[in-house]
């Protein structure tokens, strides 16, 4: 135990030093060529990235989660959350494509697809897969319920659809 801790410490110090030097080199390069890197204009973008992510994007995502937790029963919620996570990640990539579509010279073959329609298609497919998975879950739970009714032991390994023993924690 002590030995792994010792070598861990060495590893961590080594990694930390490399990491620090990496950051230092990046900053050094940026400050060393200010006419190109425009640090005074770059800085607000760096801060803005955190502000937009932590104070706009994430609160929106969390509020959606909160609403779901309030109003949707747990079994359905699980699937809705899963589908929303997948769909939102794809949407994040698709939004700039939709926004910039058709703004380029034709020979570039750039951003010519109908991204809004394509995104809709992908979301429809995610929704279909999610709904199918949910339907399977409902059917299985029903079958298991019948098993309990006729006094058959439930499966020993808890599947996510069956109630948990110590729900209060």
């Amino acid at each position: 135990m002590a030995r792994t801790q010792r070598s861990d410490l060495t590893l961590r110090i080594a990694l930390g030093t490399i990491g620090f030097l990496g950051i230092g080199y990046g900053v050094f390069r940026i400050l060393g060529n200010q006419s190109v890197s425009q640090p005074l204009k770059l800085a607000p973008w760096l801060i803005g990235a955190i502000v937009l992510h932590d104070f706009v994007l994430t609160p929106i995502v969390l509020s959606i989660g909160l609403v779901l937790t309030r109003f949707v029963e747990p079994r359905a919620r699980r699937y809705i959350q899963g589908g929303l996570v997948t769909g939102a990640l794809v949407t994040a990539i698709a939004i700039p494509l939709i926004y910039r579509r058709g703004k380029n010279l034709p020979g570039k073959a750039l951003l010519e697809r109908n991204y809004a329609a394509n995104l809709a298609l992908i979301i429809a497919m995610i929704a279909a897969v999610t709904a199918a998975a949910y339907a399977v879950r409902v059917m299985r739970d029903r079958r298991d319920q019948r098993g309990i009714d006729t006094n058959v032991r439930p499966p020993t390994v808890q599947t996510s659809g069956t109630p948990y023993p110590n729900e209060t924690t």
Binding site: I13, L15, G16, G19, G22, I23, R29
Partner: peptide, 15 residues
């Protein structure tokens, strides 16, 4: 230049 800052801070983060 930023790539070094990103990679460096990831390595520091892992440490």
């Amino acid at each position: 230049a930023l790539a070094y800052a990103v990679m460096g801070s990831i390595i520091l983060h892992i440490a």
